[in-house]
Each structure stands twice: as structure tokens, then as C-alpha cells.
Design a protein around this nucleic acid. Structure first.
Lengths: 222, 222
DNA sequence: CCGGAAGTGGAGAGCTCTGTCAACTTAGAA
DNA sequence: TTCTAAGTTGACAGAGCTCTCCACTTCCGG
């Protein structure tokens, strides 16, 4: 949980380090709740520092976000590793997808960050590690014959893209609703579908409309 | 194509009506290309009128968008009707989903409009007509045993939500890419999956990243 | 406990967006 | 042709955002 600072240069002064932690702490909460769209003003107020201080610590928004999501990125990697160690290739694949989505379901900012901040150095490095693991997860499932033979890593990669709006939409209405469309997608990938009962279904028209309404209110940048 | 004006009061003066059409024409192109985020300034410039004129014709952005999408909404209804007339319940369902998504794939603004502008009167009326038709499309498929028995109208409703970001992401890279994840979802809904070959697959890492990058750049409002 | 380097606060510049308004122009009825 | 209601223009107000700057404060090594 504690965010270490990569210290090439001299360490921060005591008060500066304390403020840095306060900013990250505030950002962690606000961004998880409201997504990447939170302004530096809001952040500064929540951290009880001035905007200038935020900018001194984090030259721009991206560097703040990167510092913020180091941990989460690491966790995605851990999930992928665990998935590969699962003796059942299908369960491994399902675990990876489900668990990494659970991470995003509870954190709007993380979801948006993973989705759009694809150009940063830290992300590139992380991806360089992650993609081969996904390749192996998919290849293993394919070789075991548990997914359709045409399924690729990119099919897996599309899943967060597809479920992002669903998660955003249902977060306030019924936070677990996304598990149902996920189940549908997973069944679509499966070689020999086993029709388990679909999860989380009770939804009326108003609920559905609420989901639609909330699905695309996310702010966006760049 | 020509947008009729609901004329409760006196008709517009000739020059005003001409400007109104110019604004709609410009908006149709810009919004299809760039989504709902286009500003009134851009619109005004493209229509070769002043911002004030745009605001005089359309008191706010929503009323402009509504005038803009009357036709498209109508077309969704036509697609639903045609789907119900298809003798094959599965083909009917597939046709509805595919064709309404095709409509959105070519028009970023329409996609965003359908997704988020759920509170307007015109939309409410339209929905009141549309939902019973979807109910029938789904019920028919369920009764014929071609979809899993738990499938609901809302499962169908989630599909545009899920494919929206995929369509946005792939529009510039490979405009038909969304058909592949759609196929996966449809297979997931199917009672007895028939594993046809998946469509449109050639994608490399760079292409995939580009899709991710573009997927969430859509502007949002409200 | 002193001096200077490091850090802070917050006003404000500069941008983009939505929407308004008063001075000007024009269509079209009489 | 004249007159006026209808329409147009574009500068501008106001809000929100990102980021800067510099006078002021605080830390901490000597």
C-alpha cells in the first residue's frame, strides 16, 4: 500500500514527503470514486495542500496517475502469474479475467487508466511483461481444447474494453451485474460450453436505464 | 433524410429555415465523425453561421441532437420490426443486434446519443415503443429454444454497451473488428452454439494497443 | 541558531466550453 | 415602398480546467 518513491536524486524533505503521501492518499480515494477526471483543485483540497504543491510533486497529471497505479499494475501481474499456476487451464483463464476485472470494478480510475494511458513508459514496461503471460494463458487453454481454436490474446484483451461501460453503469445500481455479461462472453469463448446458471440477473427497466445512463458519463482526457 | 420541423407555431422565415438546415447538415457530418463532443463554435463555423444563430435555433445542445437523430431512431425501429418478421427467431435476433450496431459503427455521435441521452422526451417515447419489440424478439428466441433460457431483454440491451468502446477503438484501425467480439457474445447467448469461424481477426500488438488507446477518448457530457 | 536551499500557497494567465445580449440586418405583409 | 417582427452577428460573461510564478515559510546542516 505504501508507495515507494524512485529516488535517483536526493530524498524529499520531511514535510514534502508527508505532503506527497497526503496527495497520493487523497488521489487514491477520489480517483477510485470519480475516475481520472478529478481536477487538481479537488485533489489539492482533499489533501489539504495548495494546487501549486500538487504540481511541484507531480509535474503533470500522468505522473501522478502513474505513481498512483504502480501497486495496482503489480497486482494485475500477480493475478496473471497465479492464473498460470492454476492446474486447470480453463479455470486459470477465468480466474485471470475475473480477478483483474474485480480489481477494476471497485476502482473507476484504475479502469480508465488501464484503458487509455497506454503510451506511458511505465505502462509499456508493464505490458511488455504482461502480454507474454496472457499469451501463455490463452495458448495453454487452446492447447487443452477448452477454448475455441481461433481464440487469441486479443480476444481476451477486448474483454475489459467490453465490460468497462457495464461496470461503470452498474456500479451504483447493482455492483456485481457485470459478472453476468462476463459469463456470457466466457461461454462464447469456450470450446464446449457448459451452461451454468448465469449470475446476477434481477434488473427492471429503470435499473437498466440507470445502467445505460451511467455507463458513459466517464470523463476523458488527452 | 430531410428533417421536418414540428411546427406548432408559425413557420420559420425562409432564411431562418435555410440556416437551420445548414446547421443540421453540418452537425450531421461533424457529430458522426467526432461524437457529441463537438462544440457550438465548430458547428457554427462549419455551417457558416454565427454561434448565436445556432443557439437561437436550438436552445441547447440536447435539442439539436434530438432533431439530428430523429431519423436514426426511426431506423432502429425499422430494424426491430424487420427482425420480428424474420421467420427464423435466431436470425431475427442476430439481424437486430448486428444491423443496429452497424448503424452505430458508422456514426460515433449516434452511438453516444443512444447510450447517454436516455432522459429526453423523444427518447422516452421511442424507448416505450422499442422495448416491447425487443421483449418479443428475445421471447420468441427463448421459446424456440435457440437462446439459453435465462436470456433477457436486458442481456440484449447490454450488447451495444459492451461493443461501444470496441467500435470506437477499432473505427480507425479496422472498422469491422467489432464483429468478432459480437460473434463471441452471440455464441454465449446461444442455446446450442454452432461454432462458425470467427470474423475479422488479423490484429497485431500495435493494432490492439491502438484500439485500446482510441476506445475511451470519446468526449462526454452531462 | 543562522542562512540558504527546499518547499508552499494561492492568485491568476491562458485555454475551452456553454450560453447571452444588444446592435445591426432582412424578409415579407400591407 | 415602408415598417416591423424575425433573424443574425460576434463580442463577451461565466464556469471549469491545467499549469505557472513568486513572495513567503519551513527545514536542517554546519
Amino acid at each position: 500500500m505504501v508507495v515507494e518513491r524512485t529516488q535517483i536524486c536526493r530524498p524529499l524533505r520531511k514535510d514534502a514527503e508527508r505532503n506527497r503521501q497526503r496527495i497520493l492518499q487523497a488521489a487514491r480515494i477520489l480517483v477510485a470514486q470519480h475516475g481520472l477526471g478529478v481536477s487538481h483543485d479537488q485533489l489539492a483540497e482533499a489533501a489539504d495542500v495548495a494546487v501549486g504543491t500538487v504540481y511541484r510533486r507531480f509535474p503533470d497529471k500522468d505522473s501522478l496517475l502513474e505513481a498512483l497505479f504502480v501497486d495496482e499494475m503489480d497486482q494485475v501481474m500477480r493475478i496473471a502469474r497465479a492464473a498460470l499456476e492454476n492446474p486447470d487451464p480453463w479455470q486459470g483463464l477465468v480466474c485471470f479475467v475475473t480477478q483483474s476485472l474485480e480489481l477494476q470494478a471497485g476502482n473507476r480510475g484504475l479502469k480508465e487508466f488501464l484503458m487509455h494511458n497506454v503510451t506511458s513508459d511505465a505502462m509499456s514496461a508493464c505490458r511488455a511483461d504482461l502480454i507474454p503471460m496472457l499469451d501463455r494463458i490463452v495458448a495453454r487453454a487452446r492447447e487443452a481444447g477448452v477454448v475455441r481454436p481461433e481464440v487469441t490474446t486479443y480476444d481476451l484483451g477486448m474483454i475489459p474494453l467490453m465490460l468497462g461501460p457495464v461496470m461503470d453503469g452498474c456500479r451504483a445500481v447493482q455492483p456485481d451485474l457485470w459478472r453476468r455479461p462476463l459469463e456470457i462472453v466466457l461461454e462464447g469463448l469456450r470450446a464446449c460450453p457448459e451452461r451454468d446458471r448465469l449470475p446476477a440477473a434481477e434488473l427492471d427497466t429503470d435499473g437498466f436505464l440507470e445502467v445505460m445512463r451511467c455507463a458513459h458519463v466517464s470523463t476523458s482526457r488527452r
